[in-house]
């Protein structure tokens, strides 16, 4: 706590002994700001893709669709037969035939509203919800094949798994991006700190000659770079959050491309980014300062 207080409040006298260095100050501020900005988007993407993966997994895992492809005259009978089979099948929690309006709504994104479903040879869809135990898909298919020739069971596994895998891969990619952003920021700040230390080699020599301990000299640089990273990170985070706020809100029409923002307490997570940036700068500058002071000794 004392250390944190000393780092944040500092010592006005000690801060003045190291001359201000414009280039490294600007570089650190810019890098921290840019990295924080990118980090906000990577974090938003990570959280959104996580949500999508969870939703797809939850919503689709227990649902299946039974399609009745039959001539109009047989469609009602086959639908009734299929529903009967489904009611008798262990593991099926519920099954219901979609109404003509529901089927028209499914097609409306392609054909528009007011579609005369009755006059079109559209198969009848049955929504199947399985229970906790689940049903035997192979057995159900065999029975349907024998008793309802026009029935085709689609348990969504064929397209659900790649979608969930893609969403999870996107989340992993976002996490890797955040780690890379942190690493790149550490590298850039290390370079800036090294440049500042090299540029101030004579100042360091004078400070040593008048009795300054290396920890005192290092702290002067570390504090400066940490505060710059915090300030740059704060600005970058604020801009990033404004950018995320301006993204379109989640909607059914937009699908995956909307709703990339944060939700609920998720909005608090970006607040950690400047703090983590400051921590990265602190560690990077401490290591650079100790190494450089060792070389200059």
């Amino acid at each position: 706590m004392t250390f944190l207080k000393a780092l944040l409040l500092g010592d006005a006298q000690a801060d003045r002994v190291v001359p201000p260095t414009g280039f490294t100050a600007q570089l650190t501020l810019f890098v921290s700001g840019a990295m924080a900005f990118l980090c906000v988007f990577a974090l938003a993407l990570s959280m959104a893709s996580g949500r999508v993966a969870d939703r797809w997994a939850d919503e689709l895992a227990r649902a299946a669709t039974l399609r009745i492809n039959a001539p109009a005259a047989q469609k009602a009978a086959q639908t009734e037969a299929a529903l009967k089979i489904l009611q008798q099948t262990p593991g099926v929690a519920s099954a219901r035939a979609l109404t003509a309006e529901e089927q028209a709504a499914l097609l409306s994104p392609w054909f528009g509203s007011g579609l005369p479903v009755d006059s079109l040879p559209i198969p009848q869809l049955i929504e199947v919800i399985e229970d906790e135990a689940g049903y035997d898909a192979t057995g159900l298919r065999l029975r349907l094949q024998a008793e309802v020739p026009g029935a085709v069971l689609d348990d969504h596994a064929r397209w659900r798994r790649p979608l969930v895998d893609a969403a999870l891969a996107l989340r992993r990619l976002s996490v890797v991006s955040i780690l890379l952003i942190g690493g790149a920021m550490a590298a850039m700040i290390t370079l800036a700190a090294n440049a500042a230390l090299s540029a101030n080699a004579q100042v360091i020599e004078v400070l040593r000659l008048v009795g300054a301990q290396d920890s005192y000299i290092a702290q002067a640089f570390v504090r400066r770079f940490t505060l710059r990273a915090l300030a740059g990170g704060g600005a970058g985070m604020a801009l990033g959050m404004i950018g995320v706020l301006l993204m379109p809100a989640a909607s059914d029409e937009g699908g995956f491309l909307t709703g990339l923002g944060f939700q609920g307490v998720g909005w608090l997570l970006p607040l950690l980014i400047p703090l983590l940036g400051g921590a990265v700068a602190f560690v990077a500058t401490t290591r650079a300062a100790n190494k450089k002071l060792g070389e200059l000794a």
């Binding site: 001359p19 004078v206 040593r208 000659l209 301990q213 290396d214």
Partner: peptide, 24 residues
């Protein structure tokens, strides 16, 4: 290095070129 810093506080040095920090 820390002990050396303490030693230098017991030895005052006047350098030929003075060695000042020009920003102070």
């Amino acid at each position: 290095r820390d002990q050396m810093a303490h030693l230098r506080r017991r030895i005052g040095v006047v350098h030929q070129d003075c060695r000042f920090l020009d920003h102070l």
